[in-house]
Nucleic acid binder design. Structure first.
Length: 616
RNA sequence: GGGGACGUAGUUCAGUUGGUUAGAAUGCUGCCCUGUCACGGCAGAGGUCGCGGGUUCGAGCCCCGUCGUCCCCGCCA
């Protein structure tokens, strides 16, 4: 049985054609002697009519049909009468008058109907993933995903990038995330690791002379899950030789604009840029959401004596966070918001400006002005708590933000994000995304995405982070990131002041990807390892192959990796990666459909030279 | 590792202060129906109240434990 058309393509101009449609029964409406079958496939839904008078046999078959049966309808396309046109369906002007119906396969009553829009239970959805994936919304998400990946491949290929595959079974590198391990049968007691990213392979491809590499690469990290984190995920990974930071930005902007265009959305380039320090000052976070106004420094609004009275540490910033159109908060709302604010590092906030106004009317007038607050805006002041001043240690580096400054900014920044989520229906800034998502299928042509999708480059991250527990300096990123040349001499004397040639791409408050200009000189790479407290033997043991490769004429190189899943998630208007990964895992990293992981037989374990520590 | 929410019919949920036979919607089954498109009408079936233990004359409801799903913190170079 061959179909002549899909269930989504027949239109008024096809009237009169003899057609064969194959699909799932989406719904059956039985009027006795007249039966309607809605046939569904990936492309859409078409109505099939069975008239007992015209086709008693077909009618009899249609009577047996049930939801999710796979059926063939053979008949003629007919224009519907004016009064029975369904304007909600793209195929609503026609119907198929079938003279034959064949049931190709029956179906058990499904635990939920793929014809419904909203399904609640994640457990059931994941167990019967094939039914969930039949839903139009999921089909659309994967259409978006496919188009994005295809556009990326086409764009990068046109820019001379080669797609090269790198191994899944590789070497464990104990830094960073926990590895997924694969035991070796041949080499007793030895393990491969699944890659957390193709990082070193792509750098070696640069050493190999590939010049420009990319890969839509699967990565694996054995860490606890979140809505935006799965244990295996896909990155758009790329690397190129002789790049400036800006070279890489232009490439990424190019393929993103091209991917967005592929799903009917225009995205203006180039993207704005901000340094890490400025991002912290203006947004209190290293992945700013530009859909809402940033923070404003309002210390100037207060007299020194005001700050003393309010128990505000005058050495730390005083910032206002503003969310438009949220309005005054009630006492109850303010109480409910309290747990959303992080006071742990000595930040405090004032969210009742009315009360503040009574004692400090001048300051409030001034700070409203500074924060450009309009009538109906929610305005909250965040500052350092003078009471925690005495005990707090603070490492202050000239020209960089101190830890306590960051504490105030990030408390404000996180609070801003939490409140923005909570009051989304009042400020409406997030609704723009929903309006743009799916624009293509509404056939509205190219839609302006500049308000809904707000990318921003974040640059000049610090090279090291101080670990208060071990007292060691840790790489803020991976240890192959090149420091700024002019900061190199402070590597040992003043690591906190060293900036990295590292950059993030954030979009709508989500980290979409990160990259860097890499170290291409062996001596520098060794210095960095040593600055991280890695002995020479240790470095050789873990990265000897790489240090060796660096000695054979390594070109300057750099690159980036973008989360494909997260990108598609934003474009699909989804809030969980599970909506854009065909077979995702639960929060405990279980695949409910295939039921993995499972124990394995003793025979298998023995072959792999493995004994588990579990009591049986 | 920690915190929070949830778990009752196939599904989504309600279930009062602990009190008779646990409800609704939807789905499902049967019958009726020639213009529906979330078709409609009538009738019916459907329950290990996640699991285990405890308190009580009596537990869906209270207590302890446990399992699962989701969200968050830690973690994710």
């Amino acid at each position: 049985m061959q179909r002549t058309h899909t269930c989504g393509e027949l239109r008024a101009e096809d009237a009169g054609k003899s057609v064969v449609l194959l699909g799932w029964v989406n719904r059956r409406r039985d009027h006795g002697n007249l039966i309607f079958l809605d046939l569904r496939d990936r492309y859409g839904i078409s109505q099939v009519v069975l008239d007992k008078d015209l086709s008693p046999a077909g009618h009899a078959k249609a009577e047996q049909a049930r939801p999710e049966y796979v059926v063939a309808a053979i008949g003629k396309v007919r224009l519907r009468g004016k009064d029975v046109i369904n304007p909600k369906m793209v195929t609503g002007e026609i119907e198929i008058v079938a003279d034959k119906v064949r049931i190709l396969n029956d179906a058990k009553v499904p635990p939920f109907s793929p014809a419904e829009d909203a399904i609640g239970n994640e457990e059931v959805r994941l167990k019967y993933r094939y039914l969930d994936l039949r839903r139009a919304e999921m089909q659309r998400n994967f259409e978006v995903r496919h188009k994005i990946a295809l556009a990326v491949r086409q764009y990068l290929s046109a820019q001379s990038f080669y797609e090269v595959e790198t191994p899944f079974m590789t070497r464990s590198t104990p830094e960073g995330a926990r590895d997924y391990l694969v035991p070796s049968r041949v080499h007793a007691g030895n393990f491969y690791a699944l890659p957390q990213s193709p990082q070193l392979f792509k750098q070696i491809l640069m050493i190999s002379g590939f010049d420009r590499y990319f890969q839509i690469a699967r990565c694996f990290r054995d860490e606890d899950l979140r809505a935006d984190r799965q244990p295996e995920f896909t990155q758009i990974d790329l690397e190129m030789t002789f790049p400036q930071q800006e070279t890489i930005f232009r490439v990424v902007e190019g393929f993103l604009a091209s991917s967005f265009a592929a799903v009917g959305i225009s995205l203006p380039v180039p993207f704005p840029q901000i340094t890490y320090d400025d991002a912290m000052r203006q947004f209190g976070i290293d992945k700013p959401d530009l859909r809402l106004p940033g923070l404003t420094d309002v210390k100037a609004a207060f007299a020194e004596s005001d700050l003393t009275t309010l128990a505000i540490d005058p050495a730390l910033p005083v910032v206002a966070l503003r969310i438009p159109k949220v309005g005054e908060l009630s006492r109850k709302e303010r109480d409910d918001n309290k747990p959303l604010f992080d006071t742990r590092k000595g930040a405090k906030y004032i969210d009742d400006l009315k009360r503040l106004e009574k004692s400090f009317p001048d300051a409030v007038v001034k700070l409203r002005e500074l924060a450009k607050a309009e009538e109906g805006d929610l305005l909250i002041i965040v500052a350092g708590d003078a009471a925690t001043h005495i005990n707090a240690s603070d490492t202050k580096v000239e020209g960089r933000l101190s830890e306590r400054e960051i504490a105030v900014y990030s408390a404000a920044g996180n609070f801003r994000v939490e409140l923005a989520k909570k009051y989304a229906d009042r400020h409406g800034a997030f609704a723009v995304t929903d309006a743009v998502v799916g624009a293509e299928e509404r056939n509205t042509g190219i839609v302006d995405g500049s308000a809904a999708f707000r990318p921003i480059w974040v640059t000049d991250f610090p090279m090291f982070e101080h670990d208060p527990e071990t007292g060691k300096w840790m790489p803020a990123h991976h240890p192959f990131t090149s420091p700024h040349e002019e900061d190199m001499d402070r590597l040992v004397s003043d690591p906190a002041s060293v900036r990295a040639r590292y950059y993030d791409l954030a979009m709508n408050g989500l980290e979409l990807g990160s990259g860097s200009i890499r170290i291409h000189r062996q001596d520098v790479q060794k210095q960095i390892f040593s600055a991280l407290g890695m002995s020479e033997e240790e470095a050789k043991e873990r990265f000897g192959f790489f240090l060796e490769a660096l000695q054979y004429g390594t070109p300057p190189h750099g690159g980036i990796a973008l989360g494909l899943d997260r990108l598609v998630m934003i474009l699909a208007g989804a809030t969980s990666l599970r909506e854009v990964i065909a077979f995702p895992k639960t929060a405990k990293a279980i695949d409910l459909m295939v039921d993995a992981p499972t124990p394995v037989s003793d025979v298998q374990l023995k072959e792999l030279h493995i004994r588990t520590a579990l009591k049986s």
